[in-house]
Amino acid sequence: MAVTTEQLAEEMYQMVKETMGKKNLKAGDLTKAMIAKYGEGEINKDDCKHAIRILMDSGRCVYSYFGGSFITLPHKEGSAPE
């Protein structure tokens, strides 16, 4: 594997950070982006799954829900902003 799971997690984190407020990303979007970048022979879906798990378990990212589940940065708790 060309990259470590930790590196994948870091890259995913940067992607989430950059698109925050512009586009909501799903787990599948991050996975597709990483596989496109490193190539199918280098990393697979399971690697990406583990990377997402690292982001979640460390609290760096959280799941959000608006008619679908997205991965975002942690935010102030509360209802939908108004």
Binding site: Y63, E77, A80
Partner: peptide, 20 residues
């Protein structure tokens, strides 16, 4: 009741429905 919001337990993406 207001629209969903985002709450849950650490590490999980589901199982809790936010309600306000």
């Amino acid at each position: 009741w207001k629209h969903g919001g985002i709450v849950g337990v650490m590490g999980y993406g589901g199982g809790v429905i936010g309600r306000y």
